[in-house]
Nucleic acid binder design. Structure first.
Length: 383
DNA sequence: CGTTTTTGACCTGCGC
DNA sequence: GCGCAGGTCAAAAACG
């Protein structure tokens, strides 16, 4: 009810504006419309070189220094990765992001992971500088929070930032159901955008995960969701089957509730594809093996196209396939019993696959077959 | 009646 | 120091 009210008002707003996410890019809808493009990009050497850390690049400006975050392993990989695999920072826009697989006009979606906005990036930089201080202050700050209403905060205490993870979703629904329960605690008008930004907090006690939801002023149909923090509890919605891993992975360190790239089908005809860095995902996979007896989830990453990260003009999209399986279709229809909004189809990025694409593909196939249409796994070259 | 949303006020950080 | 913008709080209202 209330949500619908809000929805309607924001939808109204959405008709008016443009221009709030200059740093965010959309990918042409057909750029990933085929399995071919979906899976081949990651193995392209040139792309590989430049794209391997696309997501990482983006996250590198995030608060991966937070020792309690799932970015720990991720960061380790970052640090230990051969320098040659790390793209020169100068070539990577600060606000790059991953966008993938938009599908249908109404239910198409895209994901992005980024620090989302200039402010966020600034924050992250500051975080990096002050992370040690923050670590020490964490407990103190919790106490501080309780007092803060009545007493002024310490001036020298910088606000703690959790790792952020943002993605864009093409959806009519602002607040996508990701399986967790959120309580709205604030709403603010955003400068240069007619759309308000909503602030949500995980309702679980002791779980400080926050979520910001705002609608892109560039494209009102796009909802930008920014997660901040790490869930410390299982997902309250525990769908059976492949998606059962969601709560676990989330509890094990998935940023703010989703475990990787995936598809969220909003109840109202929206889907969201989101992506996490491969290292992160591998970490989670390992964790899953340790903790989970549930079926594997489909796990596919999608490599981020170079042009997306570097603000380049996208190359002409590949010719449309004879009958490309609409990604949105499988994401919203292949698991009818699963809460659509909580569904997650994971896309695995494969930055380190120059010579092992076959085995990786095979592995992915095993993971993917849980939920992707069989034609999705056909080797494009065999077609 | 418990939970969630709304909303104005307040706080903080930053740029000028 | 001041103003602005983002973020948060909490009382009140709405909802189930």
């Amino acid at each position: 009810m209330a949500e619908k009210k809000k929805e309607s008002t924001e939808t109204e707003n959405s008709l008016k504006n443009t221009a709030a996410f200059p740093n965010q890019m959309m990918i042409p809808e057909n750029s990933f419309s085929t399995p071919n493009s979906l899976f081949d990009i990651s193995c392209d050497d040139e792309h590989h070189q430049k794209n391997s850390f696309g997501f990482i690049d983006m996250l590198s400006v995030q608060d991966f220094t937070n020792p309690s975050s799932l970015f720990d392993d991720f960061l380790q990989n970052m640090i230990t990765a051969p320098p040659s695999l790390l793209p020169p920072t100068s070539t990577v826009p600060e606000y790059s992001e991953v966008v993938n697989t938009p599908v249908t006009p109404n239910s198409s979606s895209m994901s992005s992971a980024s620090s989302t906005e200039a402010a966020a990036n600034e924050d992250q930089k500051k975080i990096t500088e002050t992370v040690e201080e923050e670590d020490e202050d964490e407990e103190e700050q919790d106490q501080e929070k309780t007092k803060k209403q009545l007493k002024p905060k310490k001036k020298n205490q910088k606000r703690q930032r959790e790792p952020r993870f943002a993605f864009m979703t093409k959806s009519e629904i602002d607040h996508l159901d990701d399986g967790y329960r959120w309580r709205k605690y604030g709403q603010k008008a955003v400068k240069n955008s007619p759309f308000p930004r909503s602030y949500y907090r995980c309702t679980s006690t002791a779980c400080g995960v926050k979520k910001r939801v705002e609608r892109s002023s560039d494209d009102p149909s796009i909802v930008v969701t920014t997660y901040e923090g790490t869930h410390t509890h299982p997902c309250p919605i525990t769908p059976r089957g492949a998606f059962g891993l969601m709560p676990e992975t989330a509890a094990l360190g998935g940023v703010a509730g989703f475990t990787g790239s995936g598809v969220i089908g909003g109840g109202g005809g929206s889907t969201s594809h989101f992506v996490i860095p491969p290292q992160m995902f591998h970490h989670q996979q390992q964790q899953q093996q340790q903790y989970s007896t549930l079926p594997r989830a489909a796990t596919i990453f999608q490599q981020q196209p170079y042009f997306l990260r570097n603000n380049l003009t996208p190359p002409p999209p590949p010719p449309p396939p004879p009958s490309p399986p609409p990604l949105s279709n499988f994401s919203t229809t292949t698991n009818p019993t699963f809460p659509p909004a909580a569904a997650a189809t994971l896309f695995q990025e494969r930055p380190f696959c120059p010579s092992s694409s076959t085995s990786l593909l095979a592995r992915d196939h095993g993971l993917l077959q849980d939920m992707l249409p069989s034609q999705m796994f056909k080797d494009p070259k065999q077609e």
